[in-house]
Simulated assay, not measured.
Amino acid sequence: MQGLRDWFATTAGQDLAEREARLLSRRLAGLYARRVLQIGAYGGGRCPTVYGEARQWVMDDWPNGPIDLHASSEVIPLASGGVDVVILIHQLEFAERPHQVIREAARVLAPEGHLLVLGFNPLSLWGLRRILPVNRQTPPWSGRYLGARRIADWMLLLGLTPRPRESLAVLPPPLQRWWLQRHPSRVADSQSLGPGLRWCGGVNLVMGQKRVNGAVSPPLAWRRRLEIIPGGLAEAGAGARRTRRETWHDAG
Rank of each mutant, 00 (worst) to 15 (best):
G147A: 04
G81P: 06
R27K: 12
M1G: 08
R130K: 13
Q100V: 12
R241S: 09
D61N: 14
Q38T: 01
R224E: 15
L118S: 00
R46N: 08
R35W: 09
L69G: 09
D189F: 00
L115A: 06
W154M: 06
M1I: 01
A110G: 03
M155S: 03
E18D: 13
W178K: 15
P77I: 08
L31S: 09
E18M: 10
P218Y: 10
F94Y: 08
P48G: 04
T49S: 11
P48Y: 06
F8R: 00
V187N: 12
R149Y: 11
I87W: 08
V134P: 01
L220T: 13
L132A: 09
L160R: 09
R163W: 13
Q91F: 06
M207V: 15
R35P: 02
T11A: 15
R35A: 06
R19M: 03
H99L: 12
P98T: 02
V86Q: 05
G13K: 02
A106P: 08
F94D: 00
L128M: 14
I67D: 08
Q181C: 14
A215T: 11
E104Q: 14
L23Q: 02
R5G: 03
R223N: 13
V170R: 02
R244M: 10
C200D: 02
W126S: 01
N135I: 10
I39N: 10
L128K: 13
V75E: 14
P140A: 10
K210P: 11
P48E: 05
E246G: 12
W7N: 08
Q191I: 15
G81A: 11
Q176F: 09
A236R: 03
A188I: 10
G214T: 02
Q137K: 13
R130S: 02
E20W: 04
W199N: 01
I228S: 12
R182L: 15
I39M: 14
W248R: 06
L197E: 06
W248L: 14
L69M: 10
D61W: 06
A105Q: 04
T247I: 10
P162H: 12
E227D: 14
S25T: 15
M207W: 01
S124V: 06
G13N: 06
Q191V: 15
W154C: 11
L125T: 06
W57G: 01
S124H: 02
R186F: 07
W222S: 15
L116R: 11
I89D: 15
D6P: 08
L180D: 00
G159P: 11
G119R: 07
A238R: 01
